[in-house]
């Protein structure tokens, strides 16, 4: 019952935030002026800003939000653990490592999309390593352990690259990139990330029924006809494609995949499959809202999206833990 109201409500929120996101920016155009320019192309400068800067930025916020929300919900469902998040299995840190190597070696400037391509390569290598380490059966414990090991390894190499960097300018550029942002992106970024993300989203949605069955544990799920090995493969590939692509175009953005499924779980009656669409919309709303906030709070200081998300997300998470603890007492 509640589900029938929740999804349209969240969808309306996303639509509203998408419009607001198009209207907020340093150029300060009027409301009517911006929309006219966006739709009919009146006024050269305004049209350029709307179509080439704000529209791709809003679209990327949606894509990143969908990827993080969906991946977080699917991972928590598979691992049967509300503390799981996309960063846990090492995809984001490996994608970041790929990007950082590109920034440090100067490969990032070789061609327009060299940076996202390097990040995707990093994500791909980590997935192959992850599946190799986690073994052929569909266990969740080995997946977590392998993920933590890969995260740690990627973080270590990241530090090494920064440590040995001969160029302080490149170091600061790298650090800023890692903070995560959607500023100054173009439709090229949309074009490189979208196909991969779309494949990831489909894979993640296909896990819904398997995740429901896993509520009763691995053995019970398997005897209900769920092939755990294949389920895990679809999950890992889905997270890698969507979160790998999200990190490649936006840097590392945490907390969305952790907090959003946690907030929405009670509203869908706890069922992991029903949480997927809700978390998709919730993640999108959260990233859109945060990306609007970074432009409103410090309009001229380029506040990074990942930083704001962590500042808002961590206390929110603490509050949720406090609420859960009280509910359990």
């Amino acid at each position: 019952m509640r589900l029938t109201l929740l999804l349209p409500g969240l969808a309306a929120l996303v639509a509203l935030l998408f419009w607001v996101s198009l209207l907020v920016g340093p150029a300060g155009f009027g409301l009517g002026e911006s929309l006219r320019a966006l739709i009919s192309g009146e006024g050269e400068a305004v049209t350029l800003v709307m179509r080439e800067i704000r529209l791709p930025r809003a679209i990327l916020a949606v894509m990143v939000g969908v990827s993080l929300g969906l991946s977080g919900a699917a991972l928590q469902g598979f691992l049967r653990n509300p503390l799981a998040e996309p960063g846990l299995i090492g995809i984001s840190s490996s994608a970041a490592l790929g990007a950082v190597i590109a920034l440090q070696t100067g490969f990032a400037t070789a061609f327009a999309l060299a940076l996202p391509v390097s990040a995707l390569t990093g994500a791909l290598v980590s997935v192959l390593l992850l599946l190799l380490l986690a073994g052929p059966r569909g266990g969740s414990l080995t997946l977590i352990l392998a993920g933590i090991a890969i995260s740690a390894l990627a973080a270590a190499f990241l530090s090494l690259v920064l440590n040995l960097s001969p160029n302080p300018f490149a170091v600061s550029e790298t650090v800023f990139w890692m903070l995560g942002s959607l500023a100054d992106r173009s439709f090229d970024h949309v074009a490189i990330a979208l196909p991969l993300m779309a494949v990831g989203w489909l894979l993640l949605f296909s896990t819904a029924r398997g995740l429901d069955a896993l509520t009763l544990g691995q053995d019970a799920a398997e005897t209900m006809g769920i092939h755990l090995g294949r389920l895990r493969l679809r999950l890992v590939a889905g997270v890698a494609a969507s979160v790998g692509a999200a990190t490649a175009v936006a840097g590392a953005i945490g907390f969305v995949g952790l907090v959003v499924p946690h907030i929405l779980r009670p509203f869908v009656g706890g069922r992991p499959g029903a949480l997927l669409p809700a978390s998709l919309l919730g993640g999108t709303a959260m990233v859109l809202a945060a990306d609007i906030a970074v432009r409103l709070i410090l309009p001229d200081r380029d506040l990074k999206l990942g930083v704001l998300m962590a500042i808002v997300g961590a206390p929110l998470f603490l509050h949720l833990i406090y609420k859960t603890r009280r509910a359990m007492a």
């Binding site: 049967r80 509520t215 009763l216 544990g217 019970a220 009656g269 706890g270 992991p272």
Partner: peptide, 17 residues
């Protein structure tokens, strides 16, 4: 094992998967 706080009816429905 019951991993999530799903309603009893929803849980029994999992048997129909």
């Amino acid at each position: 094992e019951i991993a999530w706080p799903v309603a009893v009816e929803t849980l029994v429905m999992l048997g129909r998967i």
